[in-house]
């Protein structure tokens, strides 16, 4: 597991029923591309987050496949349609098998 992996997600606290909201999420991760070399000329092995999923009440919002060309601290912005109050479940999958999770509740006003 990479060090200091911390998800940060921005979701509005509440929305109107049927409203389309913007979600911003970032996770601190080095995203080692497998292209770089260390001082001795050895290739630093690839270690990235390869998948991000976001679900709202069990319904999929987005499923992102990440490759090595995604920047350090991968940041994503996307939209979701909120029909009912509930929880956004974010899941990041690391190359080394670690899974990072974050949940954000949203209320419907």
């Amino acid at each position: 597991m990479a060090d200091n992996v911390k998800p940060r997600v921005k979701v509005p606290k509440s929305a109107k029923s049927g409203e389309v909201i913007t979600i911003k999420c970032l996770i601190t991760h080095p995203m080692e591309s497998g292209q770089r070399k260390d001082k001795d000329g050895n290739v630093i092995p690839r270690s990235i987050i390869n998948r991000l999923t976001c679900d709202l009440n069990g319904q999929n919002v987005i499923d992102v496949t990440l490759e090595a060309a995604i920047s350090t601290n991968p940041y994503f912005e996307f939209t979701a349609k909120v029909d009912a109050a509930g929880d956004f479940q974010f899941t990041w999958y690391d190359d080394d098998g670690s899974v990072y999770k974050e949940t954000k509740a949203i209320a419907v006003a």
């Binding site: 389309v20 913007t22 919002v61 496949t65 991968p74 994503f76 912005e77 996307f78 349609k81």
Partner: peptide, 15 residues
């Protein structure tokens, strides 16, 4: 990007 049924629009951005 694979968009699910709860996606608000088929748009996304990243770095």
């Amino acid at each position: 990007f694979n968009f699910g049924p709860a996606a608000g629009s088929q748009s996304a951005s990243t770095r």
